[in-house]
Design a protein around this nucleic acid. Structure first.
Length: 522
DNA sequence: TTAGGGTTAG
């Protein structure tokens, strides 16, 4: 039996993925006089945008339809709104729609249009349009408004206002608000809104856990992750990516391993994000072999995969391996192009390996070959590299040639180099710069006092300490931690609060004694 | 056809 036209079109579209097939079908429909009917035009545009990702051709079809309806506008605007690069096209087509009449926008189209708002005033203007069109009480539209406002700079107040005025808040609108607070770094408010939720699903947990880890609240993120598992919400790929990031920052290898097991048992090992996060976690926790193994297993190594692996090696001073991975990336990385993060890792690797010339060379390569404008991070690495090598004239030339103001890392790196090489004159200069940037940082003043001590300038030492006492700004002590049996133990300098301090010192002294014996030192 | 969540950097 011959299929009817409707079935034939749908069948052809579902089986092909080539523009040529689409064109043949279009020609066929034209001969039958159906190419511009709303139903078939809609199908063609959806196929073009969703299957072929060919927005240019979709627009061509769209522009040749003599009378457009709301569905066709929605299809085209949705496609534009799906990618940031085409957001301006979405917005301009939507404005065109508002000017032409009819067709009028329906409530389905506003959430898509709202996704494209680059700044607060665009969201406000759409908000006004929503009110004018009478869709301002549709919960989905209100949720889209909350989300859109919370994503534009300075829009959180409006997001909160819309959210507070909503009479029918869903788990989605709550989640949008949680993310909104997290985005501006207000973890406390994010936790509060999360606490007010009656229903929670996986994305809402993810929003809060991501909010914590993105704002450096790693312990809190881990606690929430444990609670999520305890309350029988099944973590998905997004959850484990956030939790792994927290594990890496906290050095929690055991939990990281448990998550790795969970990833395998739950079919998440094919997610490139998850694999990259595993590489990063193992690398930060010092398991370089495991990091490498996971990296090698990833069949779709993207930019982040390569960067994470390079950073792992750089972090542990394995500069040769980091450079080897970089070369592999450039030569056989499947067209993956290094970015600014790659070069931070690479320069770090050179710093830790004392490879000054190579570091310079990569810095040049980044600018000349890849056209990447050096960021403050790259300058920080370069100064660190030169400072450690005692090449202070060159380091100062780099500082003078910077296109931005040197930050604490730049001066701090220089100061470190000065300390190693006994350049007290330059150390004084760098320490003063650090104090200029952050006058309330006691650590910088202590560094300056130490430099004066080296120079025998005792009056200056007393002056610095006087200021320190007046400001009451003492140095935040450095801290390290180790994980034993799933418990993290923290240690501060001179801290004897651990109940096993005495035993720890006995072991430490025996280790030092052993080292001295081996090294032939007294 | 409509709304929320993700990794890497001194």
């Amino acid at each position: 039996m011959k299929p009817n036209l409707n079935e034939h079109v749908l069948d052809t579209l579902s089986k092909s993925n080539h523009l040529n097939h689409l064109k043949q079908l279009q020609a066929y429909l034209t001969t039958l006089g159906h190419a511009h009917t709303h139903f078939y035009a809609f199908k063609l545009i959806r196929f073009c945008t969703l299957t072929l990702s060919n927005l240019t051709y979709a627009r061509l079809i769209f522009d040749h339809i003599p009378s457009l309806n709301t569905h066709l506008f929605t299809a085209m605007i949705t496609a534009y709104a799906a990618h940031p690069a085409t957001h301006p096209s979405a917005l301009s087509l939507f404005r065109h729609m508002l000017r032409s009449q009819p067709p009028r926008p329906n409530h389905f189209i506003f959430p898509h249009a709202l996704k494209t708002c680059p700044e607060s005033c665009a969201a406000e203007s759409l908000h006004a349009q929503i009110v004018k069109s009478g869709f301002h009480e549709y919960p989905v539209v209100q949720t889209a408004l909350v989300d859109s406002y919370s994503k534009v700079s300075g829009g959180l107040g409006n997001a909160k206002k819309v959210f507070d005025e909503m009479s029918d808040r869903s788990v989605v609108s709550f989640t949008a608000m949680v993310s909104g607070f997290a985005r501006v770094g207000d973890v406390e408010s994010a936790v509060r809104v999360f606490g007010e939720m009656l229903d929670r699903d996986v994305p809402s947990w993810n929003a809060l856990i991501a909010g914590c880890t993105q704002n450096g609240a790693f312990t809190q993120g881990i606690e929430l992750f444990r609670r999520m598992v305890f309350e029988c919400n099944r973590p998905n790929g997004v959850t484990v990516v956030c939790a792994l990031s927290a594990c890496g920052h906290m050095g929690m290898l055991q939990l990281g391993r448990w998550i790795h097991g969970y990833v395998y048992k739950n079919g998440l090992a094919f997610d490139s994000f998850v694999l990259n996060a595993l590489v990063d976690m193992y690398g930060k926790c010092g398991s370089l072999g495991k990091a490498r193994k996971v990296f090698e297993m990833n069949p779709e190594k993207g930019l982040t995969s390569w960067n994470s692996m390079i950073n792992c090696f750089a972090l542990h001073g394995q500069s040769d391996s980091a450079i080897a991975i970089f070369e592999q990336m450039v030569e056989g990385g499947g067209g993956v192009r290094p970015d600014e993060v790659t070069f931070v890792g690479l320069l770090n690797a050179c710093t830790h390996g004392g490879l000054v010339e190579k570091g310079y060379w990569y810095f040049e390569m980044m600018v000349q070959e890849y056209g990447i404008e050096p960021q403050i991070e790259h300058y920080g690495c370069l100064i660190d590299l030169l400072g450690r090598a005692g090449r202070f004239d060159e380091a100062m030339d780099v500082v003078k040639g910077m296109s931005m103001e040197p930050d604490e890392v730049v001066w701090g790196s220089l100061l470190n180099g000065c300390k190693v090489h006994g350049r007290t004159d330059l150390a004084e200069f760098a320490a003063k710069k650090l104090i200029e940037i952050d006058p309330h940082n006691g650590g910088y003043r202590i560094m300056l006092a130490n430099v004066y001590g080296e120079l025998g300038k005792w009056d200056e030492v007393r002056n610095v300490w006087r200021t320190l006492k007046q400001q009451k700004s003492y140095k935040v002590p450095g801290c390290s931690w180790i994980e034993v049996d799933d418990q993290v133990h923290q240690f501060y300098s001179l801290d004897k609060s651990n109940p096993k301090t005495e035993d720890l010192y006995i072991v430490l002294e025996s280790l030092v004694g052993f080292r001295n014996e081996v090294m032939g030192e007294p």
